[in-house]
């Protein structure tokens, strides 16, 4: 059990984070920035050049993809902040089911993880089941969810939630099992009720692990969102990509892929920012500031 859960803990999607925040001087920061974006720009230029030379229908130049990206989603009227109707009909539903499924998985995953991790009885009964169920690749369950929940939104949200709940559960179990015994004893001495114990000791202790699980869950959620949208009722970003590919609208397909990349990057950045605020104490206490 330890082995498998630590695999999830070593998150797939750990973003490159500065391990230590130093008041970097202006030129250093500028250099960092230049290196990071310069590399991306260089790759973009090479790709652009290669694509233009090859002139292949399936590989349009990036400039064309970006142009199409703007046409599709950012050429609306000022009243809607330049967002087009496709944003409302395709991107918003995708985002909603992505975040909905993920959020549901986080809430239920943390509750389940706490129950399993803190109660021996629940743990003994439920943990083996969890390890079995999570071993099933979620896409294999799409037909089952079809039958149970139909072809629409419920199926997709459920599929996403089901796929991403496991890293949250396993990391939460790990986190709550490593709660400092002396913290719990302190809670007992000072008469903490269950609310104080849960929100004041167990949850904060486990929060670094829980966030690691949430990050893995987020990246898997995006994957599951796309997969779920390639089947069933046609809407969402996954459907745009698949539909475009089937009708040889390669610009649209690539614009959709670019959109997914941006979406994943931005969501991850937001989560990392929240995480680094909430678990600041964790890094601080481990660095041993004096």
């Amino acid at each position: 059990m330890k082995v498998s859960s630590s695999v999830d803990t070593v998150s797939l999607a750990t973003p490159p984070r500065p391990t230590r925040r130093r008041p970097a001087n202006g030129s250093r920061r500028l250099k960092d920035f230049a290196v990071r974006w310069g590399a991306l720009l260089a790759i973009g230029l090479v790709w652009e050049l290669a694509a233009r030379l090859a002139d292949n229908l399936f590989f349009p130049p990036p400039s064309r993809i970006i142009e199409r990206f703007f046409e599709l989603w950012l050429s609306g009227p000022p009243t809607t902040f330049f967002l087009t109707e496709s944003v409302a009909t395709n991107i918003m539903p995708s985002l909603a089911r992505l975040l909905g499924g993920w959020a549901a998985a986080v809430v239920f995953g943390v509750l389940l993880g706490v129950a399993i991790g803190r109660s021996k009885v629940v743990g003994d009964y439920v943990e083996p089941i969890i390890h079995f169920v999570r071993a099933i690749p979620p896409p294999a369950l799409i037909p089952v969810f079809f039958i149970l929940l139909g072809f629409g939104n419920e199926m997709r949200v459920t599929l996403i939630a089901f796929a991403v709940i496991w890293p949250v559960v396993l990391n939460t179990i790990d986190g709550v099992r490593s709660v400092e015994q002396l913290h719990l004893d302190t809670g007992r001495v000072f008469e903490f009720d269950w609310r104080k114990r849960f929100f004041g000791i167990v949850l904060p202790s486990a929060s670094p692990k829980i966030f690691a699980g949430m990050r893995v869950a987020l990246s898997v959620a995006i994957i599951m969102m796309v997969i779920s949208e390639m089947v069933g009722r046609p809407d969402g970003i996954g459907n745009i990509i698949l539909g475009a590919q089937r009708t040889y609208r390669m610009d649209d397909m690539w614009a959709g892929i670019l959109l997914l990349g941006i979406l994943g990057y931005v969501l991850n950045a937001i989560l990392s920012a929240v995480e680094s605020r909430i678990t600041r104490w964790h890094r601080g206490s481990r660095e041993g500031v004096s």
């Binding site: 002396l182 302190t186 007992r188 001495v189 008469e191 904060p204 202790s205 929060s207 104490w281």
Partner: peptide
């Protein structure tokens, strides 16, 4: 049987009894 109300204990291992968060 349990920790009585009105009783407090200062642990020897003070650093691990404070909440770092």
């Amino acid at each position: 049987t349990g920790v009585p109300r009105d009783l407090a204990l200062v642990f020897q291992d003070y650093s691990r009894s404070l909440f770092p968060w």
